[in-house]
């Protein structure tokens, strides 16, 4: 899952450790979320969204994998 966490963090000039402290998680967890290696739980996603004053959808992008099947299905759905 793609996300804008790194950008939002950079806008506030926070380090991963600072953001981790604010969210009560480790720096390693912030790094894993930013690099897309870990998708946070719903409670943590809400916590992140609240901290940045955004909605979850603003921060996390649930984009399905680009595959030929998905592309053709999308094309069929398009008007």
């Amino acid at each position: 899952m793609k996300n804008r966490l790194k950008v939002l963090r950079a806008e506030r000039d926070w380090s991963q450790a600072v953001l981790g402290d604010k969210l009560d998680v480790s720096r390693q967890t912030i790094n894993a979320i930013e690099t897309g290696r870990y998708d946070p739980s719903l409670p943590l996603a809400f916590k992140i969204a609240r901290l940045f004053g955004r909605t979850i959808e603003d921060i996390f992008e649930d984009k399905p994998e680009e595959s030929p099947e998905n592309i053709s299905a999308d094309a069929k759905l398009a008007p």
Partner: peptide
């Protein structure tokens, strides 16, 4: 006591 990622 760990956070969710480290717990995993």
């Amino acid at each position: 006591e760990l956070d969710e990622f480290m717990q995993k």
